[in-house]
Structures are given as structure tokens and as C-alpha cells.
């Protein structure tokens, strides 16, 4: 199994398309950083709006490395599923397309093993991608913009809120958020692999994954109560942004944020459970289908 995993990782590492993901992340992050270095004030003004009529806020301090990372992740984590699909969607179908799947499957390896190894390889790719993101979006931003307290601009129900998290209460939240993102993106990897089992070219599952994610995301953002109540809980995309839960700091009765607290750990935990259930279901179906499949490619 370990040797098979090595093979898979080796194949991923040797494929040029793998590096598209890393280059794309680097490019997006750098564009953000340059843009905010040049004119982050405008963005702050937009977010703070008329709060500035009442309060004196040092916008230079507000645009710091922690804040930058949040802003970047906010955008990036919507796009990263595409990058994960790029690798995971290719896992089975890419081999089918190249004519190597049949060669692999007539080796003394069980199909379940092949699929699990493909999944694990995609998972590891996802983790490395996230580490790269953490390096670019968090550590590089911390270097460029320094660190300070962090402002979270949030829409909660009908209310908009600004949360402030003190600088010494942030890093663990990022670690937790990246771990959550790892689980969320693994759902995408599992979905891509499932779709990959059905296809014999790699474009199909990649496009299908992206379409499903986009479609679900649009539906879960329609913001109509009927959909919010009846449809949204059933769409896994609703839970992809759950990493933000780690930045929704808990408050006391006076509305003062409590250091080290979370507003709603229950809901984060539930989301995690739902995501993990999705991984198991997607992977389970993928294994069953793959085992029964006649390899005609």
C-alpha cells in the first residue's frame, strides 16, 4: 500500500498540471498582497463604511498579515476546489484515458486498494496545497504586513457585524481553519474521484466537479428562506466555508469577545461530521462502482 502510494505521489509530482495549482495559488495571493499593499485603504473604507463616522480606526493597523490571510482565504477557498478537482478528477479517468488503468488493474492489486491509494494521494496533494496556501497567504502576509488584531466583517442573518480578535488569539484559529479546510477539500477530492470512476477522460470529472460545486454554491447563496431551510442543509457546499466558524469569536453578555472562545463550536463540529460523512459516502460509492466496473478503456 505504501509503495503504491509512493507511486501515485510520484506520478502526481511528475505531472506538469500539478504545478498549475501551486502557481495559481501563488499568483492569486501575490496579486492580493500587491493590491492591498498599494491600496488596501479603499477596501477597508468599503468594509468599514459609516463606522468611520463614529470611530477613529487606524486602517493601517487593520490591514495586517492576519487580516490579509482571511481575505485571501475568503476568495481562494472558493476556487481551490477547482484545483483539487484538477488532480483528483484525473485520478482514475486520466489513467483510463492513457490506457494505463488496465495495465494497473491487471497487476496483483485490488481495486479497492487502487482507489484508496488514489484517494490518499489526492488527499496528500490537498494537504500540500493547503500548506502552500498557508505559507503564501498567512506567513508571507505576516512578513509583508506585520501582525496585529484582526477584524472580521461578517453578515449574520440580517445583521452585519465587525468582530475583533486580538493578535495573540489568532494563530490557533488559523491552524484549526486550515485543518477544517483540509476536511472540506477532501470532500471535493472524494467527489472528484467518484466522478472519475465513471469517466474515461479527465476533463469530464474535473468539469463535473466544478459544475456541481458552483451550482450548489449558487443555490446555497440564493438566500430565500425556503431554500435556506429545506435545501441548504443538504448541500455539502454550505459547509465548505465552515472554517470561518473558527473566526467567529464567542462573546459575553456585553458583546465583548472572549479570548480563545468560539461562538458556535457545535455547529462547526456538526459541519465537520457532515463533511466527513460525505467523504465516506462518496468514497464508498466510488469503491463499489469501481469494483463492479468493466474496464473497457
Amino acid at each position: 500500500m505504501w509503495s503504491l502510494l509512493q507511486i501515485e505521489l510520484y506520478k502526481i509530482s511528475r505531472r506538469p498540471r500539478t504545478y498549475i495549482a501551486f502557481a495559481a495559488i501563488a499568483a492569486i495571493v501575490l496579486i492580493f498582497q500587491v493590491a492591498f499593499k498599494a491600496d488596501g485603504q479603499s477596501y477597508m473604507n468599503l468594509m468599514l463604511q459609516n463606522v468611520q463616522d463614529n470611530f477613529e480606526i487606524d486602517r493601517n493597523k487593520a490591514i495586517n498579515g492576519y487580516f490579509m490571510c482571511y481575505i485571501i482565504l475568503n476568495t481562494l477557498l472558493v476556487q481551490v476546489p477547482i484545483l483539487v478537482a484538477l488532480v483528483a478528477g484525473d485520478a482514475i479517468s486520466g489513467e483510463a484515458n492513457m490506457g494505463t488503468l488496465r495495465l494497473m488493474l491487471c497487476k496483483p492489486i485490488s481495486r479497492t486498494q487502487v482507489l484508496m491509494v488514489k484517494f490518499l494521494a489526492s488527499f496528500i496533494f490537498t494537504i500540500i496545497l493547503l500548506l502552500w496556501m498557508a505559507f503564501m497567504a498567512l506567513f508571507l502576509s505576516m512578513l509583508i504586513f506585520g501582525t496585529n488584531d484582526m477584524l472580521i466583517f461578517r453578515v449574520k442573518g440580517d445583521e452585519s457585524q465587525i468582530l475583533q480578535i486580538t493578535a495573540d488569539d489568532i494563530l490557533w484559529r488559523y491552524i484549526a481553519a486550515f485543518l477544517y479546510a483540509a476536511v472540506a477539500l477532501t470532500v471535493i477530492a472524494a467527489l472528484s474521484i467518484l466522478l472519475s470512476v465513471f469517466a474515461e477522460n479527465s476533463i469530464g470529472p474535473i468539469v463535473a466537479t466544478v459544475c456541481i460545486v458552483i451550482f450548489f454554491t449558487i443555490v446555497s447563496n440564493i438566500n430565500v428562506p425556503v431554500i435556506d431551510r429545506n435545501v441548504k442543509p443538504w448541500l455539502f457546499t454550505s459547509y465548505l466555508v465552515g472554517w470561518k466558524g473558527f473566526f467567529y469569536i464567542g462573546t459575553n453578555a456585553d458583546g465583548q469577545p472572549l479570548k480563545g472562545s468560539l461562538e458556535n463550536w457545535e455547529s462547526i463540529r456538526n459541519s465537520l461530521n457532515i463533511l466527513i460523512a460525505h467523504i465516506i459516502v462518496f468514497l464508498g460509492i466510488a469503491i463499489v462502482v469501481f469494483k463492479r466496473k468493466d474496464i473497457l478503456s
Partner: peptide, 26 residues
């Protein structure tokens, strides 16, 4: 004690995580 203006972020800009408690928490 001072007057504040309503603070409203445009919806969709933040892609927030809705934990389903928003209504009751208001």
C-alpha cells in the same frame, strides 16, 4: 452614549458560514 448609523455589509461579499443560529441569535 452616541448615535450610530446602521451597519450593513452587502450580502454575498463575505460568503459567510451560516451556522443556522442567526435568526435566534438576533
Amino acid at each position: 452614549i452616541f448615535n450610530t448609523k446602521d451597519y450593513k455589509l452587502p450580502k454575498g461579499i463575505t460568503f459567510d458560514f451560516d451556522d443556522g443560529t442567526a435568526k435566534s441569535a438576533a
